[in-house]
Design a protein around this nucleic acid. Sequence first.
DNA 1: CGTGAAACCGTCGCCCC
DNA 2: GGGGCGACGGTTTCACG
Lengths: 166, 166
Amino acid sequence: MPGQKLDAIDRKILAELQRDGRMTNVELAKRVGISAPPCLRRVRTLEEAGYIRGYHAQVDVRALGFEVQVFAMVGLHSQAQADLLEFQERCDNWPLVRECHMLNGEVDFILKCVAPDLSSFQNFLTSDLLGAPNVESVKTSLVIRTSKEVPGIPFEVMEDRLSKTP
Amino acid sequence: MPGQKLDAIDRKILAELQRDGRMTNVELAKRVGISAPPCLRRVRTLEEAGYIRGYHAQVDVRALGFEVQVFAMVGLHSQAQADLLEFQERCDNWPLVRECHMLNGEVDFILKCVAPDLSSFQNFLTSDLLGAPNVESVKTSLVIRTSKEVPGIPFEVMEDRLSKTP
DNA sequence: CGTGAAACCGTCGCCCC
DNA sequence: GGGGCGACGGTTTCACG
């Protein structure tokens, strides 16, 4: 499962499905310029190879009553492998944590969290996150507004660099 | 477009489509316990009301050759409304920037960026981001690994609190 | 919201290059 | 190896009760 065993049609398929994950296969086939059966075979192959990890409806977080979004920068006391893993598993089990990224530098993790309101986030912060073992420090930043939120990768950039160094 | 004009079936539909955005309508209808036609009508309504903002394939960023992911914390000189908007528009036009969130506190924006490799990110950082007008400071953190990445909201939490305060 | 019908789509087998 | 053609069964999407 290396880098570029993908041809131009595969990349177009991925770009189209990233843009509209509910597109029918015939529509997709039309857009990438082949007929439906080979198009579907390619999609299945891309799924099985792990290039496509899933399909998700993008819901409006705020409209559904989750008005608070927070980035939490977490520092740990110990960065031993076992302790990092333990913290990650803890994050897995916190539904308010939607993303957990391990970082380089002074901060160890950044978490993207959602909550219905400030008090339920504060409750999560003080009871769960700050109460977890090995957590040294947490700095939180409230999201005031999100002006851009596009998933995945910019396929234009991918095509650009493929055309420069083929 | 208010808060909870959604009944239990609508919420189940949203939860299922968030989990699997390519589910067929008949499968979805079966899962939420109604027949296909009203189910499709509900989905269309949810889309038009903005609760569903789109459907996207979740691609494997690293497997597609974007091996570098970075969070960039940006401070601006001026936080005047026009200057904030100007910076947001600039982020819109940078394909390597996938998310742009305005924050409270000392940092003004957090950007989630992707890049094929470190040097192309460094190039973006020095030429584009640090070269943009009104940008005072940028602190970057490389993502070492992502251990959790789930989209949207935790519907369990939503149901929990609806059952407590109906 | 459910039923039925018509059009469309996903999917398979086969043939072709 | 991958792409196209044709056909069957399931699905989407009407109009109507």
